[in-house]
Design a binder for these strands. Structure first.
Length: 685
RNA sequence: GGGCCUGUAGCUCAGUGGAAUUAGAGCGUCUGUCUUCUAAACAGAAUGUCGCAGGUUCGAGUCCUGCCAGGCUCACCA
């Protein structure tokens, strides 16, 4: 029996008792952890709520304490419960049979988070990263990818089947701008770009080249004056490129496709460094090429979701009524979906794509493999070329048709996301708005100090602001690969001085794990609604509340088991399990878990066993920071345990068995928690 | 002006309506702990008008209302 199962059983007991005794149907029952472990293992404040419900139902006033007393027998029933105490005004504190439960935990080992592929299971869909493929990724993009990837891991740990998508906007303005840069600033054709790409060394990759070029394009439009308005003549170049991209099958589109694809490859390389991988790259050019929008347009017209305006400021446009902004009557807030010139807006395309994700468009993409990762996983890409033309066709999973779609997009996009969700809900009422979830989060910004550090000039106005927004257009940002490189250099220096016996390859591998741990944890410890004001000192730290701190705790735990006699762990668990049948052993195990010291050891076991519950809650609330905080607390509790108890040297066999079992549970759960955050535990550090 | 979000220690942040004397971490500051299973660690000290004012109830940092301060957003751009 796991802790979660036991808690659910206790809740069932309470629900049953409340129904039998007072005829009250309890909805959700809250289980709490008492403020101190000596007060009990789990507490239920349910008597207070029952008092209110009983009064509502019957008018009779019953004291919470009396209710708690009446619930007590039901909670004492399970074999895992040793006793129940009523405390304070009506708290029900439950104490577990620690010896029995510890034995149970040995068999309830956490199932490894396997990827579920059973196609009959409902599918969750998570779209994240979705970086415009015209430049290198910066730290803000990494927050998106790490949040999305971690949420995917959380859903999988919670037993869900998940498909991961990365949307590639390869026909938008941003790609067009870089194409303008190549053609009109650099004067390059496709062959010259390819040659340049080939000549790039490890120092500068294609996405870095584009990063710089992109900022030059911004200046080029403004005739090299950063504060001036763009020159309309030069903006025409962008418009021409955009038209060429939309039309397809021309040299400009071919050039743009090369540029976008190379940037996608670079960005995927960056994300792969952080153990972030994708099932499908959905490309905008294929959404256009396969006429997804035309189908969606028909559906929307048929359903009466949009209407053609015959007068007013939106005359000639197809709009979707959207009445949430009722502040001023002069501007109705209807959202234009099709412009008066007949072209579709971004929102319109997004509705079509969202319909496909939910399996309600009635059209599908074609697919081909894009890359194979080192672990054998294949990232597919959408295509306009029929699958049957790609012979022999590789077996592929079925894409799309999600039950719930999570779009990981920063909260600046919450307005358009709301419109997409409403549009889809209006078209397919049986789905409802809950099928489309905007997984929003605040941006990563730069502090004034960080800008100084990066050598960025700021205006006095900017200096007065609480933070500086990053901007790809202005080249303002911390590039992801730069930061990872810097973390790896720092970690490698540290590992090198601590473990001179290791080989350079081992240094590098360990430094890499530590760098990933530091970066991922740094981005995950903040809740989604917090703006991260990027600070080099904090991001580069390996001490305190950091990923490496958590990794270190697991490394220390593993080191105990490396040095322990090889038979010891199995022997320890045998002894703990025998406590079930042998009364003498049982008493000794129970003793080891009693008193101040025993309770402290037991509290680590309890915390470790809460992992399932934390995962369930993080999946329901879509808040990866919960798992990060939990992981840190577990690591902290383990470090304290490690400091207080000498496990290998422990002389008493029973005590030693309890310590070994506790350390085993802690390291197993800590490793699982870290893995859910996408952080691996190195051999040594 | 409308919508969404934020305001908790010197700094950066956690905190599902719950505790009988104490609102928590990390960083920073001060003081201790390596001949030990790894000191990337552990222990202790100092630091708080939980933005302000009302309300709801057995109980409010948490819920409601109003106010103050800050951020994002509200195109036929993408």
């Amino acid at each position: 029996m796991t802790l979660l199962e036991l808690q659910n059983q206790l809740k069932l007991q309470i629900r049953g008792a409340a129904l039998a005794r007072w005829g009250v149907e309890l909805e959700g029952i809250n289980a709490e952890t008492p403020p101190r472990p000596d007060l009990g293992d789990v507490a239920f404040p349910v008597a207070f709520e029952l008092a209110r419900l009983i009064k509502q139902g019957t008018g009779i006033k019953v004291a919470p304490r009396a209710i708690a007393e009446e619930l007590k027998p039901a909670l004492e029933a399970p074999a895992e419960v040793s006793r129940v105490e009523i405390a304070g005004a009506g708290y029900i504190n439950v104490f577990f049979d620690r010896a029995k439960l510890l034995a149970d935990f040995s068999v309830s080992t956490l199932a490894p988070a396997e990827t579920i592929t059973d196609e009959s299971r409902p599918k969750m869909m998570v779209e994240h990263t979705s970086i415009n493929p015209n430049k290198a990724a910066h730290i803000g993009h990494v927050r998106n990818a790490v949040l999305g990837d971690t949420f995917v891991r959380i859903l999988r740990a919670a037993g869900q089947r998940v498909e991961v998508q990365n949307y590639i906007d390869n026909t938008g303005v941003q790609v067009a701008d870089v194409v303008v840069g190549f053609m009109d600033i650099e004067g390059m054709n496709l062959d010259q770009i390819k040659a340049m790409d080939q000549s790039l060394t490890g120092e500068q990759s294609f996405d870095y080249y584009c990063w710089d070029l992109y900022t030059r394009v911004g200046l080029f439009y403004r005739d090299d004056n950063p504060t001036a308005d763009p020159n309309p003549e030069k903006l025409k170049l962008r418009t021409e490129v955009l038209h060429a991209l939309e039309a397809g099958h021309n040299p400009t589109a071919e050039l743009a496709d090369y540029v976008a694809t190379r940037n996608v490859e670079c960005i995927l390389d960056t994300m792969d460094r952080l153990d972030i991988r994708y099932d499908l790259l959905a490309r905008e050019s294929d959404i256009l090429g396969l006429h997804f929008w035309d189908r969606a347009f028909e559906l929307m017209k048929q359903a009466g979701v949009i209407r053609l305006e015959s007068e007013g400021r939106s005359k000639g446009c197809w709009v979707m009524p959207f009445e949430s902004h009722t502040g001023t009557e002069e501007h109705e807030a209807d959202k234009v979906i099709v412009r008066s010139n007949g072209t579709v807006t971004y929102t319109g395309k997004d509705i079509a794509y969202q319909l496909w994700k939910l399996g309600h468009l009635g059209l599908d993409f074609n697919y081909r493999p894009f890359r194979t990762y080192a672990n054998g996983q294949i990232a597919w890409t959408t295509s306009t070329v029929p699958n049957s033309d790609v012979l022999p066709e590789v077996p592929r999973p079925s894409f799309g048709g999600g039950v719930t779609v999570y779009n990981v997009i920063d909260s600046r996009q919450s307005y358009p996301q709301e419109i997409v969700a409403r549009g889809v809900a209006a078209l397919v009422p049986e789905l409802g708005k809950s099928a489309s979830v905007h997984f929003g989060y605040e941006m990563v910004a730069l502090s004034v100090a960080a800008c100084d550090d990066l050598g960025i000039d700021l205006s006095d106005d900017d200096r007065a602001r609480p933070f500086i927004e990053m901007s790809g257009r202005k080249g303002l940002g911390v590039k992801a690969d730069d930061l990872i490189d810097r973390l790896e250099v720092d970690a490698r220096r540290e590992v090198g001085s601590r473990h001179p016996e290791l080989s350079p390859e081992e240094w590098q591998a360990t430094a890499h794990e530590i760098a990933v741990g530091a970066l991922r944890y740094f981005l995950l410890k903040f809740t989604r609604s917090t703006v991260i004001i990027f600070d080099f000192k904090e991001a580069l730290s390996f001490e305190g509340e950091t990923g490496p701190y958590c990794q270190y705790a697991a490394v220390r735990a593993n080191s105990i088991f490396r040095k322990l006699d090889s038979q010891a762990p199995a022997a320890a668990w045998d002894l703990i399990r025998n406590a079930g049948s042998d009364e003498a052993i049982r008493t000794k195990v129970a003793d080891a878990l009693q008193g101040e010291t025993g309770t402290e050891i037991w509290s680590l076991v309890m915390l470790a066993e809460k992992f399932d519950e934390v995962i369930a809650q993080a999946a329901a609330s879509a808040e990866p920071a919960n798992v990060a905080k939990y992981t840190f607390n577990l690591a902290r509790a383990f470090n304290l345990f490690y400091h207080r108890h000498r496990i290998i040297a422990e002389g008493d066999a029973t005590k030693k068995a309890v310590l070994v079992a506790t350390a085993d549970i802690a390291r197993r759960q800590l490793t699982a928690a870290l893995l859910t955050l996408g952080i691996n535990v190195p051999e040594r550090m």
